[in-house]
């Protein structure tokens, strides 16, 4: 039996009280303090005076930091794009997999979540480094080819040069895609799974090819799923800290590392807070865009 919450205000309030308390005390309140810090100035080594200054934000908008913001956004966008291109076929395949296999496939997607991010990143390092598994395999293959060449009387090949896979922007994007792919696949899957298959049959019956059906029917219907997948991939990728730090090279500085250094090494909490909140404002803008998109898709077209 369904009941309106209005008819059971007491129960509703009781059920809401604890989560609300939690949200306010452990989330909104500390966040509020950091927000206030972003309008403060350092006084000595341990104190922050809340002077209402905007200088932290102005400093964060200097070309130096703006460039790092833009670069981080670029890397996050590239990551999101790759996740979408790779994740969409995966989600589609899971949707049309036999029901028994579905559960397993979804579990394989979520399996990495059960491993600590740091462990996964170190595993990637072991795969990518100069003496890592990829380069060792290549070296073995090179050795075989070399042996074959000399047996055939050819001149021996040049000595093996390992492929530079680690400590560059390629490694950062690879690591970010690897980590964030499940964030993309799961919302896509939930959108595609709800899809009314009779619409697809109708499209095919009426003479549209598979590709045309995909792009004219499936993609528009899955748009809210795509939008939320893009959002929840883009936001953590933009604030990624561990991955660029461990896999990146001297050029791979992202904004989260700069923020971390303000809170620790530079001991400049107000400036770090201002940059964190700029990142959060960007997130709000992203959520607003996503909200607008999903409203639009609900309107009759």
């Amino acid at each position: 039996m369904e009941q309106s919450w209005k008819s059971a205000r007491g129960i509703f309030a009781a059920a809401l009280a604890l989560p609300l308390f939690w949200l306010v005390v452990f989330f909104l309140f500390p966040l509020g303090i950091v927000w206030l810090y972003s309008f403060g100035e350092n006084r000595g080594l341990t104190d922050i005076a809340l002077t209402g200054t905007l200088s932290n934000y102005l400093r964060a908008l200097e070309p130096l930091y703006l460039k790092i913001f833009v670069k981080s956004a670029g890397i996050a966008a590239l990551t999101t794009g790759l996740c979408l291109v790779i994740g969409f076929p995966v989600a589609l395949a899971i949707t049309f997999a036999p029901p028994k296999a579905k559960g397993w496939l979804l579990m394989f997607i979520m399996l990495p979540f059960w491993t600590n991010l740091l462990i996964r990143t170190y595993a990637l390092i072991a795969v990518l480094r100069n003496e890592g598994y990829i380069n060792q395999s290549l070296r073995a293959g090179w050795g075989l080819a070399n042996g074959l060449a000399t047996r055939l009387g050819q001149a021996p090949l040049a000595s093996f040069q390992p492929v530079e896979l680690l400590h560059n922007n390629f490694a950062v994007v690879l690591g970010l895609v690897y980590v964030h792919l499940p964030f993309m696949v799961l919302p896509l899957y939930s959108a595609l799974d709800r899809l009314d298959t009779s619409l697809l049959e109708a499209s095919l019956d009426l003479g549209a090819g598979h590709l045309r059906t995909l792009f004219r029917i499936v993609v528009p219907l899955a748009l809210p799923g795509i939008a939320s997948g893009v959002l929840i991939t883009f936001i953590p990728a933009l604030g990624a800290y561990l991955t660029p730090d461990l896999l990146g090279g001297p050029d791979s500085q992202m904004i989260a590392s700069v923020i971390e250094r303000q809170f620790k090494r530079a001991n400049d909490w107000p400036f770090g807070a201002a940059m964190s909140f700029l990142l959060m404002y960007l997130t709000f803008i992203g959520i607003a865009i996503q909200g607008a998109l999903s409203r639009k898709s609900r309107e009759p077209g």
Partner: peptide, 14 residues
């Protein structure tokens, strides 16, 4: 000074 050095290296890396 700590802030200043941090910013110099941020510039180098960016």
């Amino acid at each position: 000074k700590a802030k200043f050095y941090e910013e110099v290296i941020t510039r180098v890396r960016a």
